[in-house]
C-alpha cells in the first residue's frame, strides 16, 4: 500500500467511525424520544381536546401547536400545554371543571386551525364529540339522594337530548320519586358544562374520554323489543295473552298500561247527592 492510499484509508476510517458515533447518539436520543412519546400519548382524563379534534394519535401527527385555536376561542376556554403540564407539549386542551366549552355556533377554534388537527368537516357544534359526560358518583349526587338539584340537567346546552331526568322509585322513603340524570351518548358533545356546574366540591358528573365513559355491547346482541318492532311482530313465538290469575275486576295489560281495574270504583257515585247522603247516614 502506497503512502497516499494509506492516508485516504485513514481518513475514510476516521470518517466512518465519526459517523457511526453520531448515528449511535441520534439513535439513542431517538429511542428515548419514542419511549417518551409513548408515555405522553394517552391524554390525562381531565384534559379535553377542542371540538373536532382528530383521534389523539392522529391529532399528535397533525397539530403544529400554533395556538390559533386558543386565540380565536372567545371564552378563553382553550390553553396550550406548557412543558411540565401533563398534556403533550404545546397542544391545546381545556379542563371542563375550570372553563367548559361554550359550544359556539360558528366553532371559531375549528375555523382557525391551519393544519386540520381540528377537523374542518365539523360545522355543526352539536355533532362535536369532545368526550362523554358520565355521572360517575352515584353516592354523592344530590338527585340520587332524592333532591331536585338538577343543575347538570338545567345547564346542558342539549337539555333533554344529552341529559334527561328519569323518574325512579325512591326505595329509601318508599313513597317519593328520584329524578336520575341520565346522559345520552347519542347527543352529548362533551362540552363539560355539567361538570363545571355540578354543585358538589368534587363534581359527581364528569366529562371523560369516550373510551373511558362508555362500554360497548357485544356485536351479536340484539334487543328483542327493537327487533320485534322492526319486524312488526314477534320473531320467536306467537304472542299469547298471559293468564295472570287476578281478582275479579282486574286485568293486566303487558306492554301497555299494566294493572287495570275494569270497573272504576270511586267513593263518588253517579249521583252527587248519593255521596252527601252517605255521609249523613253515617253520622246518624
Amino acid at each position: 500500500m502506497t503512502a497516499p492510499e494509506h492516508k485516504v484509508d485513514l481518513y475514510r476510517r476516521r470518517f466512518l467511525l465519526r459517523s457511526a458515533g453520531q448515528a449511535c447518539g441520534a439513535l439513542l436520543l431517538g429511542m428515548g424520544l419514542l419511549g417518551y412519546a409513548r408515555q405522553t400519548r394517552s391524554l390525562p382524563a381531565e384534559a379535553i381536546r377542542p371540538p373536532g379534534a382528530l383521534a389523539e394519535q392522529d391529532f399528535l401527527a397533525a397539530c403544529v401547536r400554533c395556538g390559533l385555536c386558543v386565540r380565536d376561542c372567545p371564552y378563553n376556554t382553550l390553553k396550550l400545554a406548557a412543558p411540565g403540564d401533563d398534556v403533550v407539549n404545546g397542544t391545546p386542551y381545556f379542563t371542563a371543571r375550570n372553563v367548559p366549552c361554550e359550544m359556539c355556533d360558528d366553532i371559531p377554534c375549528v375555523v382557525a386551525c391551519p393544519s386540520g388537527a381540528l377537523d374542518k368537516s365539523l360545522t355543526d357544534i352539536n355533532k362535536a364529540r369532545m368526550g362523554l359526560a358520565a355521572l360517575v358518583d352515584q353516592e354523592n349526587c344530590l338527585n340520587f339522594h332524592g333532591l331536585r338539584c338538577d343543575v347538570c340537567y338545567r345547564v346542558c346546552p342539549l337539555i333533554n337530548k344529552a341529559i334527561s331526568l328519569e323518574p325512579q322509585h325512591n326505595a329509601r322513603t318508599g313513597k317519593h320519586t328520584r329524578f336520575i340524570p341520565v346522559v345520552h351518548s347519542s347527543a352529548c358533545t362533551g362540552c363539560g358544562k355539567c361538570e363545571h356546574a355540578c354543585v358538589l366540591p368534587e363534581a359527581a358528573i364528569k366529562v371523560l374520554p369516550t373510551r373511558l365513559a362508555k362500554g360497548a355491547a357485544a356485536q351479536h346482541y340484539r334487543l328483542g323489543w327493537e327487533e320485534k318492532q322492526k319486524a312488526g311482530g314477534t320473531l320467536v313465538a306467537p304472542d299469547q295473552p298471559h293468564d295472570y290469575n287476578l281478582p275479579p275486576g282486574y286485568r293486566y295489560e303487558h306492554d301497555g298500561k299494566g294493572l287495570i281495574k275494569e270497573t272504576p270504583t270511586t267513593p263518588f257515585g253517579e249521583n252527587p247527592l248519593d255521596t252527601l247522603n252517605q255521609h249523613q247516614e253515617q253520622s246518624q
Partner: peptide
C-alpha cells in the same frame, strides 16, 4: 414516521 406523531416537538 415510526411513532406517527411529531416526536421532536415534545422537546
Amino acid at each position: 414516521s415510526i411513532s406517527g406523531s411529531m416526536v421532536w416537538e415534545l422537546i
